[in-house]
């Protein structure tokens, strides 16, 4: 239920980004923030004992990102799964709290997800220009960093709604993972 709620919230954010990003002034329209990667990283960070449900959620969000973002089905789903595992592996080593840390972590996730997409695209023989790709990765990282705090805030609210105690609720809102 918790994971489904995260997927639903991510779907709505993806819808808004896919529709609105092209209309925003002063942003690179071809390189939108990687919402799927952000949510996957969040699910990995907050996966409580078992990783499989978080990966399932991340794959689902990635699949929706593929459909709404016009990418081949499965591309962001694979990347989402990998980012989720990466998030889970680092969740005991870093604490994503506060605006600066959330911005930096989101930008890192955006860059990592964009590089993974580029690698998979290269494996699929897309034949991309390297200079253009490097610029895109940077733009995606910046865009993802910019919306990261909002996306994390939304998903923390979801976690808070599923908290069983006040302590759990406060911890979820603060971004403290156990």
């Amino acid at each position: 239920m918790r994971t489904s709620s995260h997927v639903l919230v991510a779907y709505l954010v993806l819808l808004v980004v896919a529709s609105v990003w092209r209309l925003l002034p002063l942003v690179p329209h071809a390189a939108a923030p990687d919402v799927g990667g952000l949510v996957a990283a969040y699910l990995g960070l907050t996966a409580r004992g078992r990783i499989a449900p978080a990966v399932a959620g991340a794959v689902m969000v990635g699949y929706l990102a593929d459909l709404l973002g016009g990418a081949p089905t499965g591309l962001h789903a694979v990347v989402g799964g990998l980012v989720c595992i990466l998030g889970h592996l680092v969740h005991r080593r870093i604490l994503v709290r506060g605006l600066t840390m959330t911005l930096a972590f989101s930008a890192f996730v955006g860059a990592a997800a964009a590089v993974a997409v580029v690698i998979i695209s290269e494996l699929a023989d897309r034949g991309l220009a390297l200079g253009s790709t490097g610029r895109s990765v940077l733009q995606i990282a910046l865009g993802t960093g910019a919306i990261g705090p909002t996306v994390f805030w939304l998903h923390r609210r979801v976690d808070a709604a599923f908290a069983r105690t006040h302590r759990e609720r406060d911890a979820a809102l603060e971004g403290i993972t156990s």
Partner: peptide, 15 residues
């Protein structure tokens, strides 16, 4: 009418 654009730079599509 164009209602959305691709969010992945490697795949240039519009809806």
């Amino acid at each position: 009418r164009v209602i959305a654009a691709s969010t992945t730079p490697q795949f240039r599509t519009i809806r």
